[in-house]
Simulated assay, not measured.
Amino acid sequence: MRIGIDLGGTKIEVLALDDVGSELIRKRRPTPTGDYAGTLDVIAELVAFVEAKIGRKGSVGVAAPGAISPASGLVKNANSTVLNGKALDRDLAAKLGRPIKIENDANCFALSEASDGAGAGASVVFGVILGTGVGGGLVVDGRLVSGRNRIAGEWGHNPLPFARDDERPGPLCYCGKSGCIETFLSGPGFARDHFARTGAALTAREIAAAAAAGEAEAGRSLALYRDRLARGLAGLINIVDPDVIAFGGGLSNIDSLYIGLPELMGRYAFSDRIATETRRAVHGDSSGVRGAAWLWPIAPC
């Protein structure tokens, strides 16, 4: 049995999979706000709940914001700031009395979709998350690639490719730089850009709905977003050249996002033809917790 934990800013979810990936049980609890010790307690309680219900122990993998720094062994880059600077992997292993595996939540998303989702059977899969932030993860031949610095897949913190004069220097990003892809392609970034152009305060979903209803300014905003997405993905394709790009996050549910996307990517990528397949995630919001469970290839008996 594989147990996955999705450690989010507002909720902690546990899921158990059998050895062929079938779901056995899942449960959610609110994340204790600003309480690191309380967060560890909730994770331990959820693992204990699953094992009591199923009647056996399992491996434990965790999808978490940020990453474990190879330099310090502590969490870095987490937007759930209570985790930053903490030895989350060692603290959880001590709490649970067993080794655990922790990966960035975007990496877990990519691993889930590569294992038995949108990228199943593909050699190179890049998972893209478009939501409150912009994240990504890379899986090659079924193996998650975290990188030497554990930042592989962080395409959202590269500059927007082929930036135009009115896109420079770009919005300030929380990482301290300006013009990151995330500042343009996140849900808040999309909404902010539409407001700056039109004065209309709409969410990303509302902009897409207005565009579908024929509202001209919303249509222009959506077209610009799609073009920026294509530019960002073209840069990714030039470096990684994946077989499949799997999309997750709230914005991935906007159907019109995919219209003409391969052709747009082809305008910017360094190739005469783009055969990369773009697919929506099969497991949706469950991909993070499923990917956490898949961090262990073989569960202990």
Rank of each mutant, 00 (worst) to 15 (best):
V240A: 11
S146N: 07
G249Y: 11
N77T: 00
G176H: 07
G136N: 07
V289M: 05
L229Y: 11
A210E: 13
P169H: 08
A269H: 07
L88Q: 07
S286K: 13
G133A: 12
T132V: 04
I3W: 12
S123F: 00
P32M: 04
L96A: 13
A106Y: 12
F270L: 15
G119L: 03
G219C: 06
G38Q: 09
F190W: 14
D193T: 05
S252Y: 10
V50L: 14
P65K: 04
G179V: 12
D193F: 04
E45T: 14
I68Y: 03
G135T: 08
P242Y: 13
R267I: 05
C175I: 12
D18H: 07
K76W: 02
S69Q: 06
I102F: 09
S112W: 07
Y225H: 14
P32C: 05
W296K: 08
F162Q: 09
S146I: 06
I254M: 07
W296C: 10
G176N: 06
G260T: 04
I102S: 07
T198F: 01
K177G: 04
R2G: 12
S256L: 14
N84W: 03
L7S: 01
H283D: 04
F109W: 04
A93G: 15
L222P: 06
A152R: 10
G248I: 12
A63E: 00
A93M: 09
D91E: 14
A152V: 14
S221C: 06
P32F: 04
F162H: 14
R29K: 09
V62A: 02
A208R: 08
E45W: 00
A110C: 06
V125S: 03
R56K: 11
S252F: 08
G58L: 06
R220S: 11
R168G: 00
Y225C: 06
N253A: 15
R90Q: 14
G73Y: 02
A163Y: 11
G214W: 03
V139A: 14
N77P: 00
V134G: 05
P99W: 08
A201R: 15
W294S: 05
I254H: 00
A275V: 10
A275G: 10
P159L: 14
A281Q: 00
L224K: 06
G131L: 09
R168S: 10
S59D: 02
V282D: 06
E277Q: 15
K57C: 06
L224T: 13
D243F: 09
I254A: 02
A209Y: 02
A204H: 01
K177F: 07
I25H: 10
N79P: 12
W294K: 12
K11L: 02
R279A: 13
A110E: 05
C301G: 13
F49N: 03
T31H: 10
A63T: 09
D193G: 00
I100D: 12
I274H: 05
G248V: 10
E51M: 08
G9E: 01
I254V: 15
F126K: 02
G156K: 08
A44T: 06
G127C: 01
I25D: 10
E263I: 05
N158M: 12
A208W: 10
C301N: 13
G38C: 08
L185M: 05
G58W: 02
H194A: 07
L160C: 05
A208D: 04
